[in-house]
Design a binder for these strands. Structure first.
Length: 287
DNA sequence: AATTGCACCAACCGCAAAATC
DNA sequence: AGATTTTGCGGTTGGTGCAAT
């Protein structure tokens, strides 16, 4: 027996035929859907109302965008997912013409793999532990070292009210005494376009509509602070510590010469926020 | 040519929230 | 105000078709 809503008479299930689609389209364009549970009868379909609703919303609606996701859409999905998690319907609201089902399928079949391939945990968007390499000191000469950092943005006047955008975005190259910072090469670049300003309930993402964050999710994000570590971050730590206080940190970062922070500046300057850089991990290799 | 394996995704299910009676 | 129906959501799945054997 089928689902209880479909158990009376014979109710078709499975894929929709073009004829069924026609009936549904004709009915809804002329009468509107009204109560979904009465649609099948009125449209002459042997389906349950639920199935009709799903077919219309996910496939037949005229305002649906067809075709594969663009890179911008993919970026938005990743950014919003980092904040909201598997809230597919919420995520889809940022993508006109896309459905939650479509976003979910795209995530499960495509984005997940991409993130893992980049060494990112698709749930937390942090570095996978399997990609963490211990910094190895050998006697005498130093290895090339790389630190991956995350960035935190918050209101300057409320240090507790922040969300941590833990996307690795920059690395520090330390060779002998000279030190320079660069952004990651574009192949592995994962600029956090999800930079945003966290207000009481909302996150304004650059380029996105504000969206709400549930309190529990917010707490979870806030607890994901990367632990401070040693060695190479010591050097970064110095930078950070030198500037005591968040306000100074902003300027100290802007002043650091080879650091391409254009995208940070544009996110920061108008808003009176501050930004902090935290080490997430170190990678090391032999020269 | 036939078989197996697998990725994809449209559609299903159960649950919960919202709406309605 | 409580019961019932309807809608919306997210996890899951099984059919389809492509690729490898």
């Amino acid at each position: 027996m089928g689902h209880h809503c479909c158990s009376k008479q014979k109710v078709k299930r499975g894929l929709w035929s073009p004829e069924e689609d026609d009936k549904l389209i004709k009915h809804i364009t002329t009468h509107g859907h009204g109560c979904w549970s009465s649609v099948p009868k009125l449209a002459g379909l042997q389906r349950c109302g639920k199935s009709c609703r799903l077919r219309w919303i996910n496939y037949l609606r005229p305002d649906l965008k067809r075709g594969s996701f663009t890179e911008q859409e993919e970026r938005i999905i990743i950014d919003v997912h980092r904040i909201l998690g598997n809230r597919w319907a919420q995520i889809a609201k940022h993508l006109p013409g896309r459905t939650d089902n479509e976003v979910k399928n795209f995530w499960n079949s495509c984005i997940k793999k991409k993130l893992i391939a980049q060494g990112l945990d698709p749930n937390t968007h942090n570095l996978l532990s399997s990609h963490k390499t211990k910094l190895i000191h050998s006697h005498g000469h130093l290895h090339q070292t790389t630190s991956v950092f995350s960035i935190s943005i918050s209101h300057a006047n409320d240090a507790n009210n922040f969300v941590d955008m833990k996307t690795p975005f920059a690395y520090l190259t330390s060779s002998q005494s000279s030190m320079e910072m660069e952004t990651l090469p574009s192949s592995s670049l994962n600029i956090p376009s999800g930079f945003g300003i966290l207000d009481e309930n909302c996150l304004w993402n650059t380029g996105l509509e504000p969206f709400e964050i549930e309190p529990t999710r917010r707490e979870m994000l806030q607890q994901q602070q990367p632990e401070q570590e040693k060695v190479c971050e010591g050097e970064i730590g110095n930078r950070v510590n030198e500037s005591n206080g968040a306000q100074n940190m902003e300027t100290s970062m802007m002043e650091s010469s080879n650091f391409d922070f254009d995208f940070v500046e544009s996110a920061l300057m108008p808003c009176g926020m501050y930004c902090s850089v935290s080490p997430m991990d170190q990678l090391a290799w032999d020269c």
